[in-house]
Design a protein around this nucleic acid. Sequence first.
DNA 1: CGTTGAATTGAAAGTGATCAAGGCGTGTGG
DNA 2: CCACACGCCTTGATCACTTTCAATTCAACG
Lengths: 239, 239
Amino acid sequence: MENSPLARKLLNIATLNPEEQSRLDALLSDISSVARRHDIISEGDRPERVHVIVEGWAARYKILPEGGRQILAFLLPGDFCDVHATMLAEIDHGIFALTDCKVAAGSAEALDRLIIDEPRIARAMWWAALIDESVSRSWIANQRRDARARIAHLFCELHTRMEIAGLASGRKADVPLTQEEVGDAIGLTPIHVNRTLQQLRSEGVVEFRGRTLTIIDSRKLSKIAGFSTNYLHRSRRLS
Amino acid sequence: MENSPLARKLLNIATLNPEEQSRLDALLSDISSVARRHDIISEGDRPERVHVIVEGWAARYKILPEGGRQILAFLLPGDFCDVHATMLAEIDHGIFALTDCKVAAGSAEALDRLIIDEPRIARAMWWAALIDESVSRSWIANQRRDARARIAHLFCELHTRMEIAGLASGRKADVPLTQEEVGDAIGLTPIHVNRTLQQLRSEGVVEFRGRTLTIIDSRKLSKIAGFSTNYLHRSRRLS
DNA sequence: CGTTGAATTGAAAGTGATCAAGGCGTGTGG
DNA sequence: CCACACGCCTTGATCACTTTCAATTCAACG
């Protein structure tokens, strides 16, 4: 049988034996569907259950006091929605489905027990959190750069993560985002995203039309982005 | 004897028994000093040892391709500098001392063994990583807002973290940053930081002069910042 | 009392935001 | 099979917050 997305993700980081894998999967056996544009988790929810994306794309977001929406992270299959939330009284941001999604849910308390029982799982989860933090940090540094570099960087990140998750292999990838969603992630208006996309297209670097990302000149793209793949990878793998 | 800063920090999150605490402290018994403005860890270093700030302030930073410096996080006593780095071949950003610092170092391998041996420590470290990630996320959302809100938010974060770390209690706090360093953190030129600081001062909200942060009207400050303390706290504490 | 690092002030230039329409494609219903 | 509608992409013109560049002031210190 195939690995669940979560197990697959953690296996990129650490070695887990079949029993550890099945305990993880058992924890998250309650699968439900969420339609595109609907919240998987809303700001203010009580975190009693933890959720993992099984299929589709989602985004962590926060509504700014001024009314805009900031996307904080894109979530691909295998990503946790809300582990961190279990330590808060209520969740400080929402998560919505970018596409129709399948989401696995499990009890936060059972996860906590699993962490105590299975140190290797705890360690893998810890490392996964550290990688997520690296990604967040790269977003912070990113927002300092100009529109062109920001978009390029986002595309590099997504393409690499999709490769790791087994969702992309060639130069084309299915990236189910609107230009507005891209803008909400990198802090640009959709208008400016549009113009910058046109520029990148005319430069022969990337093309992003109709949900399809086509990387035309990956070397040039990385250069514009100032992208280094290494913060997403694990050069060593835990035994 | 007093708790070490790291133990103190983790005790804010979880309960650790004396043996767990002393194993942690033993791991990080190698203390050294770093002078202000010097790197504690440089980009490209090999991560064989892990470091924790014991005394003083430090900052995680990255030099942007364009030449600017982005500060990614401020590190206070008890904060880990580089645990995440142990999974990378080389570190993707530097850490420098904002003030003269005392830093504890220990073997990355020994930390890994400790994580496997002591599940409760593993869990506490995991949660600490999740809190750090929340902070990073708040920085992302922050950069979308205008200069005034950004500065206000940074001050709220720092004041709260200092309270948690036992470094501040009243309305005054010793914040050893120059205006330029503030700017590098929130993505503004020192000139604009200066003007905005003047504005906040004239509004009677905060005053930041000569390393001292004085919160004059904390309610107004939180409002400007759109600050919610809850992402820094743990409302539950692990048993 | 000169030197140095930091804080301040002024004026000009830009990058991206805002406001307002217009175009285009796809799917649905008549 | 056509018309209309809705979602998304595209374009144009103007506005504004920040940046940049260039000095000047201030304060601590040797």
